[in-house]
Structure formats: C-alpha cells, structure tokens
Design a protein around this nucleic acid. Structure first.
Lengths: 341, 341
DNA sequence: TTGTACGCGTTATCAT
DNA sequence: ATGATAACGCGTACAA
C-alpha cells in the first residue's frame, strides 16, 4: 500500500498543499494543524518521495564528489587512482563530514568523455553542488562549470578570481611549506645531494611542491636537482633507474607524492641502497610502515572545510582555504594520524 | 536553456515516446530513426532527468550501503565506527566495484531511530537495493526489510532461509577458519596459554570466531580462556587490565577484531609486556605496523560479490557466499594486501 | 512502427 | 490560513 501526501491529506482532512507546508516547515501553518498532520505522518510512516521533491523543484541534500581520471579507461583509474592513492582517504573523510551534516554523497570518477554527467546532475538538481578533485589547471570542463553552475568546491586547483557573483570555493594544501619542510629535514639529516621527483606541473600542488623544494635548497645554498615524475608510478620508477644506471649521485629524495616515493623505495632497495632517506607526500598507508617519511595534509580539516561550504551560512563567495601539513617521520606520528579525529 | 526529451523530440520531428524508446534501448525503433535521434541527443548534450525517470517507474542505478550504528549519537558512530574501523575499507571497496559496473552508491549510517529512511529508499525506488553491514542477528528492522523489500545483501548476518521468493543474499567471512588458523599460529609459536577476547555474540562473526578459537584450543588439548569483548575498545581495555591486575597468566592473545587488539596492545606495552603475540581480525591500517598480526578477510572479493549480486544475471535467489581470509603475520603481507587489486 | 494520454508525488503559484 | 491547479520530465499501456 503506497503512502503519499494525498493519503496523509485525506486522513487529516486537509489538502496536499498543507501537508507539504508541514513537511517543509513553512511558518504559516497553525501549530494545531501541524501537530495533527505530524502525528498522522508518524503513524502512517509516511516519507516524502525524494525524486518527486527534486522534480518539483526542491533543493537536494546530495553533494557530488567528482574525481578526475585522466584517461578513458575507467577501470584503470578505479584501480590505480582510486584504490591505491590519495583519493581513497579523501572520499572517506568527505563521506563522514557529509553524513554528519545530513547530506548524502554521490561519488563518481570523471573524465573528458563523461563530464556531461556532472552537468546533468547540476541541471537536474540531483546535487546541491560538487566537490572536484584531481583536475588539471584550466581544465575546460571545470571552467565551464564555474561559469554555468554553482556552488563548486575545487580542491588543488589554481584559483582564478574572475567569476564575480557565483559561489566558487578553492581549497588547497600548504604544498609549498610542506615541501620546504620536508626538504629541509633531509638537509638537516646531513644530506648534501637531495633530489626532487616532481609532480604534475599542470596541478597547483605539483608546482607548489616543486617551488618549496627549490626554496629550501636555495636557502642552504644547494643546487636543485629536479626530475619530472608527473605523480606517476612509471615515471618515478624510470627516473630513479636512470639515475642509478648513469651513476648520478644523490643521498636524499623528496617525491611530490607517496605513490612515487613507494616506487623509488622499491628500486633503491632492490639495488642495495638502504640508507637513502625518502620523503613523499600524502601519507598513504603503505609508505611509512616501510620506513619512508611523508608530508601529511590535514585531510580531516580539508574534508570538513569542503563539506561545510555547502551550508553557506556566512554567504561568503569565492573563499580560498589553505590546509596545513605535518611531516610524518615515523610510525608513531603515522599511527596518530591514522585516527580520523 | 533546459533540454528535455520534448525538445529532442521536436527537433527530431518525432514524439517523446520515440525518444524515450531510443534512450531505453527498445528494439522496435528502426535504426535510421534511432541514429537520427541519438545524433540530436549528442548535439544537444541531452541527459535524461534521473528524478523524473525514477518517478515514472524506471529502475534506479543506485545501490544503498547501510551501516549499523548501535546508538543514537550519529557522530559517535561516524567517529568511532566509520572512521576508525573496518567499515571504512569496506565502503571504499564497494564504491569501487559499484562505479565499475556503473552503479552509484549511497552510503548511510542507520540505527533504530532512522531506519525508516531505508524503507523510504526502497519504496520510492531511489535505490535498486541495499547492502547491510553491522546489524545484529535477528534485527527487527532487517527482518522487516527481508519480508517486504528486495533485493537485499546481508554481510555478516545469520542466514535464515525462510523467505522463499525474494532475493536475499548473505555474505559471510570464513570467520571460523580464520580464527582457528590464528589461534593455531599462536600455539605453534609455542604459546601455552592463549586467551580470546571475543566479539559481539549477537553477530555471526562474533560467534564463529569464538568457535574457531575453541576448536583450535581443543585440537591441541588446551583449555579455552574466553573473555567477552563485544568488539569494543572499552571492553577490551577493561578486560586486559583486569587480567593483569589479577595476575592471570596468558602468553598469547587472539582478539575478534583489530579494534580490540589495538587496545590490548596498548595496555600490554604500557605494562612492559612486550613479548606477548597478539592477533586481531580485519587488518586495519594501524595494527600490523605496530607489530601485531591480523586475520584479513578478502575484502575486495567481499565487495565485488556484494555489488555483483545486483546484476542478478543468474537469477539465483538466496545465495550464501563465504569469503576467504589470510593471516597477516607482518609488514610484507600487510603491504601486499593494502593494494586493492 | 509510432503517437496519445495518463500517471508518478511533490512543490510553487495564485487565488481566496 | 488554506485549497486548487499547474508545472517538473519521463515511462508505458493502449491505440492506431
């Protein structure tokens, strides 16, 4: 037996309109009527149909979380990117924060070929807005969304302030500082030839981490040695093998993410280089236990900030937030950071 | 400018029905007409409105994932259960499998007070079905869902076969074998007094793990020593402190989950008991690196199995699946299992 | 093969 | 304060 607002209205002896007003907390319903209807709703176990609500123009409580997968092979990004990488932890944190605030979360992996899904979700009001992560600087589709839809939360994306009246929020990690601290730590360990395997230079984080490394090196009067790893396993492996083959000397490695530091470590260990300290970025679960170090963004705060932006309490548009990082040097700090609170 | 099926139909010079038929892959549309309409759809970037589709009776592509939080404080389960615990990894795996098969995933934490949300989702066809995890054996709400809605996938829930014609699937871990193997490992290490901190006896896993422990002990002619930890941090901590206080001897610990083994380890280390081996269950990220061991369910397979049941290719109803476990003895196996593939 | 017409359940608008 | 009615966009039984 289907229970809808019509049925509730019939029993209450009012019209569907009034029932709707009660459900949506309109002020112009006498408390007597309200109580009566609420009671019936409770007895019947009536719950409004979300699809109908959305179709009729009500705001949804679903937040979209969109992760960029930069190739056409969906299962590849799902395997390599989503499962192994940094996004995984982020999804959890966002989910948690969303649930706390009674939002629902819709997660999807997006590339150039299926970006229309995102637009559809905005247009059909299936989502209240979206959080975007992993997109390259100046990505066409993102630019389009910024212009046409709102609100939008961009994680690790260059802020461009030219979109006056829309709700566009930027959340970035303190990549520069984190990278600088990491590099300095290596130098303070007495290392004289610290190299940097850089990240994707099309992303803000990639550029900033590289800059942080350079800054630290210069501060100590050392010459930066940078190899472009593009955040990828393959590239990092290739680079480090090349260095070994050509006998290029180095005694410390700062990688722009843990994905790469993991690979670098594998190669170095295989070649008997046990004593070269390695620092990555992201604090993935399978680097610290191996004896590597990592720069950990405060991902809890990142997620919380992202979700809370949808409340739009303060009416601020176009806010830019920077998230702090912690240098994880060993298991003790790692375990501590594993707790989400 | 809104684009809907009416617009597409107008431009194509056909009726909305035909457009709908093309979208839903009906066979009775000449390929010529189909091509024409598809082209227009592509040009316009038209995407059907999901809410309207669902409202009009189409099956949704959203799978519900419901996690039981056994108290009323939502943020507590979110913090303690969701973030720290075993569910976290499971959510990720399910998400990944769902995305692979082009499903969407809706995650929510459920307790007795908000269970109506689940019914609503079923009734309103917002979800194609649900995966339920963490619910106690015989849970009233679950029984109700089993009777009234379908399909339903139950993880770690006693199978009750009295629901003839509905799609009810059970997925359990090989708790008995895993527990037995773990206990035997401790015994093979030469331990003479292995205790068990048991799990929630209202859950299948809790009971089976206890049974597995007992079986192993008996096999070696040893007397089981069981303390009911109920899967909880507090209980486990209390138990182990009590044992120390009362000078009850033991030289090995098998805990029914990693949550508890983590706590047990803390207490033992604080009291200078460094050499008592501890094995937990679930392979959480913060136990193995501490030097503990853990029984790891093949959570990838678990998630994959759960999601694939919604395809219902084979038309099997009421299937019971058991998921294998691996005993993780150290970092090497831990790292390996951290990969999702 | 294709079109007509109804129904899905709700919210918003307008009128009273 | 409340009711009637028009959207919202789509699927489908039925008719043609």
């Amino acid at each position: 037996m289907k229970i809808n607002s019509t049925k509730v209205a019939q029993i209450a002896g009012v019209s569907r309109s009034t029932v709707s007003r009660v459900i949506n907390n309109y002020s112009n319903v006498p408390s007597e009527t309200r109580e009566k209807i609420l009671k019936i709703i409770d007895e019947l176990g009536y719950i409004p149909n979300t699809s109908a609500q959305v179709l009729a123009g009500k705001k949804s409580r679903t937040i979209g979380l969109f992760i960029y997968g930069d190739n056409n092979d969906k299962s590849k990004i799902l395997d390599n990117g989503l499962s192994f990488g940094y996004y995984l932890d982020f999804i959890n944190r966002v989910l948690k924060e969303a649930l706390k605030l009674d939002y629902q979360l819709l997660v999807d992996v997006i590339n150039d070929n299926n970006f229309s899904k995102v637009e559809s979700l905005y247009v059909n009001r299936d989502i209240i807005g979206g959080i975007f992560i992993g997109f390259k600087e100046g990505d066409e589709n993102i630019q389009k969304i910024i212009k046409q839809h709102s609100p939008i939360v961009l994680v690790d994306y260059l802020s461009n302030p030219n979109c006056e009246n829309k709700e566009v929020y930027y959340i970035n990690t303190e990549d520069f500082n984190g990278a600088k601290e990491a590099t300095e730590h290596l130098i303070n360990l007495g290392k004289k030839r610290v190299i940097h395997i850089s990240g994707d230079r099309c992303k803000l984080s990639g550029k900033e981490r590289e800059k942080g490394y350079i800054e630290a090196m210069k501060k100590f009067g050392m010459t930066p040695m940078i190899y472009n790893g593009n955040y990828s396993d393959e590239k990092a492996t290739e680079i480090i093998m090349n260095l070994l083959e050509k006998n290029i000397e180095f005694d410390g490695v700062f990688c722009a993410n843990d994905n790469m530091s993991y690979c670098v470590n594998n190669v170095l260990k295989e070649n008997g280089k046990e004593n070269i300290p390695i620092i990555g970025f992201d604090n993935l679960r399978n680097t610290i236990p191996l004896g590597l170090m990592s720069v950990a963004p405060d991902i809890n705060n990142l997620a919380k900030t992202a979700v809370e932006l949808f409340q739009n309490d303060k009416g601020e548009k176009q806010k830019v937030t920077f998230i702090k990082t912690t240098l994880i040097k060993g298991l003790k700090e790692y375990i501590k950071e594993s707790y989400l609170d």
